[in-house]
Nucleic acid binder design. Structure first.
Lengths: 109, 109
DNA sequence: TAGATATTCAACCAATCAGTTGACTAAGAC
DNA sequence: GTCTTAGTCAACTGATTGGTTGAATATCTA
């Protein structure tokens, strides 16, 4: 079984839209702290704290070059969360749910 | 794009081990509030609050029968979180990461 | 050396969260 | 009717969170 605490901090890190925006940005490639902070209407220190949350969750890695810190997406941990969800997301999908989807078609939230 | 607030409350709901345990239990079938609370070393009111969080996140649904409330897993919302992760979990997986896995083999966290 | 740039750290604040207890509502059992 | 069982609600607590500001630490530039 996957370590519970790992899932705790991973899902908690993913629960914030600012941090998800950062991950989205990083999916296009490395970025510095300032790069990530720029579009965020938030102080640099605030953004820095968000990055630290992502880092502690193992979702990003940091590489220093001089005074700049380059962040990169760490797919491994994301895949762990993905794998956990897989089990439940697949749950009773086929039979009941395909029918359900067919019926509700466009009332999907 | 998926509604940000939906992802917020979904991932936040998933970030707690008590609630994930509840979902695990529900993946085996319907259960009452008491059923879910029993193994949890927590007051019934406490468990009830966790269930409400899951419900508000759309992760479980509730059916009342007399004084008992039966909860069931709602796969739809789980699949939404799963789909969001899919994009990032798949990120640069093949090339670099397969190699990385091969190298680090058993230092995996 | 001095000044600007990139980033973190520490202290603080308001809001939210996970848990508790005690009182309440509603439904079954006797 | 009365007692018990199933569950929620309200009020409270301590811990955590997301944000701020101001100062500190490096590093680059001139």
């Amino acid at each position: 079984m996957v370590d519970q605490e790992t899932l705790d901090i991973t899902f908690a890190a993913l629960a914030d839209p600012t941090r998800r925006a950062m991950l989205a940005r990083l999916s296009e490639g490395e970025a510095t702290v300032s790069d990530l902070a720029k579009p965020l209407s938030m102080s640099l220190a605030g953004a820095s704290k968000h990055i630290q949350v992502l880092e502690r969750a193992g979702l990003v890695s940091r590489r220093r070059d001089g005074r700049q810190h380059f962040l990169a997406l760490e797919a491994r941990r994301l895949r762990k969360a993905h794998a956990w969800l897989q089990h439940y997301a697949a749950f009773w999908t086929q039979a009941l749910d395909a029918l359900e989807d067919a019926l509700k078609e466009d009332t999907h939230d």
